[in-house]
Nucleic acid binder design. Structure first.
Lengths: 126, 126
DNA sequence: TTGGATGCAAAGGTTTTGCAGTAAT
DNA sequence: ATTACTGCAAAACCTTTGCATCCAA
């Protein structure tokens, strides 16, 4: 499908380019509409999908809002098959040194750990 | 708050211990109730929260279902402040070698890349 | 003129909450 | 007796969809 130009899509893109933060669809909607209504929420969602498709924007999962549960609580990494949507546990040892590497970053106060999700296609699906 | 024992909570824990997969609250609910009704969906949710609190279970964000958007599309890592819920970009270079390290895993067919989210408390909140 | 894009409202899906009753300590 | 836990239904969220209309090509 070929996309046509759209004022609303440009508004979103401009807004995203102008800020330096991660924002939800709702926030994008509200900030663009600060003064007068210029875009609807449904349009924001639709265009975020398109912009993602065009690789102008990327979706990120926040660590607080989640969907599946894991009985393994020790730190371990995951592999996510983009075809069958299965999440596999990996037995790769936890890389403590990663936490150290970034710990002197200017925004970081204290590090509790990290999660890694590898993405690709599993052997079954390939 | 001190937790009391609960049949339903044990059912969930037993179920989780008995499987080797990542499951949603809905799936837990359905599988436990396979034979006869033993637990309600609301109770599953409530107990998953408690079990998470007790570190018996861990929530995981799937890479497909997400909430915030990032205008930076090149691969980069994130730091998530658990206090103010802010997601920061890190400028740590992408570690290609990680993908290679795990690529000979038995379940992995093809690797497209990985995401890392570091978690902790940001300098502002500390 | 054609087909993608829009706004609105309705629908869908997931998670939380209020409440009255139940069970654990 | 006290307080957590339960089921149920309603509510709260977030996201998608149907539809008539609008607008870019």
């Amino acid at each position: 499908m070929t996309y046509k130009n759209s004022k609303q899509r440009e508004l979103i893109l401009e807004y995203m380019q102008g800020i330096n933060a991660h924002v939800s669809a709702e926030e994008i909607y509200e900030n663009i509409n600060k003064e007068e209504k210029k875009i609807s929420l449904a349009t924001v969602y639709r265009n975020l999908g398109i912009l993602e498709d065009l690789q102008k924007v990327k979706k990120i999962a926040l660590p607080q809002e989640r969907y599946v549960y894991d009985k393994t609580c020790n730190p371990h990494y995951h592999f996510y098959c983009e075809k069958c949507k299965t999440l596999y546990d990996l037995d790769e040892p936890y890389k403590l040194e990663l936490d150290k590497t970034i710990s002197d970053n200017e925004v970081i106060g204290k590090i509790d750990g990290h999660d890694i999700i590898f993405k690709g296609v599993c052997r079954n699906c390939k």
